[in-house]
Design a protein around this nucleic acid. Structure first.
Lengths: 169, 169
DNA sequence: TCTTAATTGACAGTATACTGCCAATTTGAT
DNA sequence: ATCAAATTGGCAGTATACTGTCAATTAAGA
């Protein structure tokens, strides 16, 4: 036996879920940015804008729960959205710590305008698959993300996180 | 009609592939880091180490093609792996521009030692699904990533990228 | 050969993500 | 009422990712 094959091959990477998830995320972001180039909005900024429109007057901590972001990361995202004029930060009357987030008129207009591009991007990500496979993949992925929700640093808390806002419940 | 419902709900985010891919990536990295904490190695660093072991003497540009990384990102990854003593960078004799990458003994030992933890992490990511669903999800995802390969900035080039190294072909 | 192309590695700048820390503030327990 | 605990936003530091640029070097063409 002259030549010993390496203990590990690249299949130790390529076929594993971790690698495929990372790769797919790279591709998804790439497609999103490409389709939405004219609006100068990243996927994360888009999600934040939608959440702020859906929950006007939300604060940063609750926003992070609603879109499952890290709070530290969110700070800079909010700052960028504010400096672009898409959102406003107003101090709360009841709690001097919090700053409430609101969409501006231009932010709302941007959100309406960008929708078709976002839809195109989302469609392109799955385009190579057959319709039945697309459906199956999304169903399995939604299930897996939900069942693993508690794992990441910021689990998704969706609407229940908003009951202190006096808007729900 | 007193109260007009918002034009957009959070389903414009939650149910979309882009969001699910990002969320799943977050979760996968979180699990990997948790399982491999004692080895102080990130998913990206792990992939790079495996690729360097599989292709000793590879250069940074080809490495980026083999693991589908951005070359700019890879620079700092390599630097970190080198400063931890896991890899070595040696100047090439033929081409004064390139620096060839080799695993060190401690790098090889680390790779062998970390394997069980990596396997545990990969298993945990899919653990909430039934066996048949795991298989289905991986098959669909592998297919989708492959069919979208050309989209991202650094398409995966796998082994064909190495034919100039005088090792293959 | 000489000029142009392309390649390689490095760097600057921006944008997620995460860990961990901090001060100001609010809440809860006593 | 007061002190401890929790919350909020912010910051420093690290690690991917990407865009774009650059100098050194090599390869290719006229």
């Amino acid at each position: 036996m002259p030549s010993r094959p390496p203990d590990i091959t690249m299949d130790a990477v390529y076929t594993k879920p971790g690698y495929l998830f990372r790769r797919m995320q790279q591709i998804a972001v790439s497609i999103f940015v490409e389709e939405c180039r004219e609006f100068d909005l990243t996927p994360v900024q888009y999600a934040a804008l939608v959440a702020i429109q859906t929950h006007p007057g939300i604060d940063a901590t609750r926003l992070s729960a609603v879109i499952a972001f890290d709070r530290s990361t969110l700070g800079s995202v909010i700052e960028r959205l504010e400096s672009k004029g898409h959102i406003e930060r107003k101090p709360s009357a009841e709690d001097k710590r919090v700053k409430l987030l609101y969409l501006t008129r231009t932010g709302g207009a941007l959100l309406r305008a960008i929708m078709p591009a976002v839809d195109r991007a989302q469609a392109r990500m799955l385009a190579p698959l057959k319709a039945a496979d697309r459906k199956m993949l999304m169903a399995l992925l939604a299930q897996l993300v939900d069942l693993n929700n508690e794992v990441s640093r910021v689990p998704l808390r969706a609407e229940d996180a908003l009951e202190h806002l006096g808007k729900a419940g």
